[in-house]
Simulated assay, not measured.
Amino acid sequence: MPASGASGTVPSRGFGLYVHWPFCVSKCPYCDFNSHVRERVDAARWQKAYLAELAGYAQAGYGRGETITSVFFGGGTPSLMPPETAAAILEAARQHWRFASDVEVTLEANPNSAEAEKFAAFAQAGINRLSIGVQSFDETVLKFLGRAHDAGAARQAIAAAQKAVPRYSFDLIYARPGQTAEGWRAELNEALTLAGDHLSLYTLTIEPNTGFAGAVARGALKPMDDDAQAALYDLTQEIMEQSGMPAYEISNHARPGGESRHNLVYWRSGEYLGLGPGAHARQRGGAGWQAIQNRRKPEAWLEQVEQQGEGRESLTPVSHAERAEEALMMGLRLAEGVYAENFRAACGLDLDAVVPRERSAPLEKAGLLIRTPEKIVATKEGRAVLDGLLAKLLA
């Protein structure tokens, strides 16, 4: 599957399966994901529910005739689930759909030693890529971020991943209050000595209804200002490009061929199924695209699946115009941009009709956009101000 549309090829949009494990050991103060802390989880009961929802998708005809190109176990902390549960889900999915010969199967993991010890078992279950939530190699920063591991455990987990699976990635958070360019350069250089083929580098964002949002409201935390964040972002791009891991998406960097195939399904507006609490799906229905949203609360999802065979909260038709807006919002995050052919396949509309040339011309002149007959691309400068650029394109 082409990763970046090299040599004039239009990349595959793929077909993905997402599995959400909603449980964590603790809740981090920056996290707004659908994650929950529970003293006890009945793993056998949860496994049965995942398999029931998966069978329901297949019986309803979703993804019929498609080939799964990627599976992603996200969370929460899916490395807390028993490896046997991951194996059972993958085995059931193979019974319902074809799997690509080079299918990517990713599992998100925390660096805690108890979870790292399970990496080999997850590999035996069918996981071939690990995504590790390192966040920092600085002990003080890890405490600030509320992480349940130390820097030594992070390095040990990366070493364990190297032995267990052919591909791995880890995350770092930067643009933290008080962070300096020199400190970030040193941290990033250490990360590069440990990196595989992929790194995710996120600026610290204060999300509503998080611990950090409360701290900001109380005046106990002052986020880094926009100019300083922008300077660190530019430094990040410079270092990563020099290292041979340029940004293929705003916050994601990879060596050629090391891109996250599953996330590319989202960014290229492909089809995907979602299992578990709060999971989303985008599927073609008889009358067009449908957006599926599962119930968020773990217990509510679990009980509904047990009673009805699915945990759906809503199924909403997605219009061509809405799908077109999604395709632009997601696709322009990518360095490759939005291919006209993929755009048409995603929303049934022509790119030139949705974004007339006269609307994009001023942005091209400003150096924020590149447009060819084949595609439309936000430049590095354009991706740095993507929200404003999209507002102009979709006006």
Rank of each mutant, 00 (worst) to 15 (best):
A88V: 05
L90S: 04
L90H: 00
E91W: 08
E91K: 13
E91M: 03
E91I: 01
A92C: 03
A93C: 06
A93R: 01
A93M: 05
R94C: 04
R94M: 04
Q95H: 12
H96K: 09
W97N: 06
R98G: 11
R98Q: 14
R98K: 14
A100P: 05
S101K: 14
S101C: 01
S101R: 15
D102A: 01
D102F: 00
D102L: 01
D102G: 00
V103A: 10
V103F: 01
E104Q: 00
E104D: 02
V105E: 03
V105P: 05
V105D: 02
T106V: 07
L107V: 00
L107R: 02
L107S: 02
E108W: 06
A109T: 05
A109L: 07
P111M: 12
P111A: 09
P111Y: 12
P111R: 12
N112K: 07
N112G: 14
S113M: 05
S113H: 11
A114Y: 15
E115P: 02
E115D: 15
A116M: 09
E117V: 11
E117S: 14
E117K: 15
E117Y: 06
K118V: 03
K118E: 06
F119V: 04
A120K: 08
A120M: 06
A121C: 11
A121D: 14
F122R: 06
F122H: 09
F122C: 10
F122I: 09
Q124N: 05
A125I: 02
A125M: 03
G126P: 00
G126N: 02
G126S: 01
G126M: 00
R129L: 01
R129A: 01
L130R: 01
L130Y: 07
L130I: 09
S131V: 10
S131F: 12
S131Q: 10
S131D: 12
G133K: 10
G133S: 13
V134L: 05
Q135L: 11
Q135K: 12
S136P: 10
S136E: 06
F137E: 07
F137R: 03
F137A: 07
D138Q: 14
D138L: 07
E139Q: 15
T140A: 15
V141N: 03
V141M: 11
V141L: 09
L142S: 09
K143V: 14
F144A: 15
F144T: 12
F144N: 11
R147N: 08
A148G: 09
H149P: 13
H149E: 09
H149M: 12
D150T: 10
D150V: 09
D150A: 05
A151W: 04
A151R: 11
A151C: 08
G152R: 14
G152N: 13
G152M: 01
A154P: 13
A154L: 11
R155A: 08
Q156H: 14
Q156Y: 04
Q156W: 03
A157C: 04
A157M: 04
I158Y: 03
A159M: 06
A160C: 07
Q162Y: 04
A164F: 04
A164T: 02
A164W: 00
P166W: 09
P166N: 13
P166K: 10
P166E: 14
R167T: 00
R167P: 00
R167A: 08
Y168H: 14
Y168Q: 02
S169Q: 02
S169K: 00
S169H: 08
F170L: 10
F170W: 13
D171Q: 09
D171K: 10
D171M: 08
D171R: 04
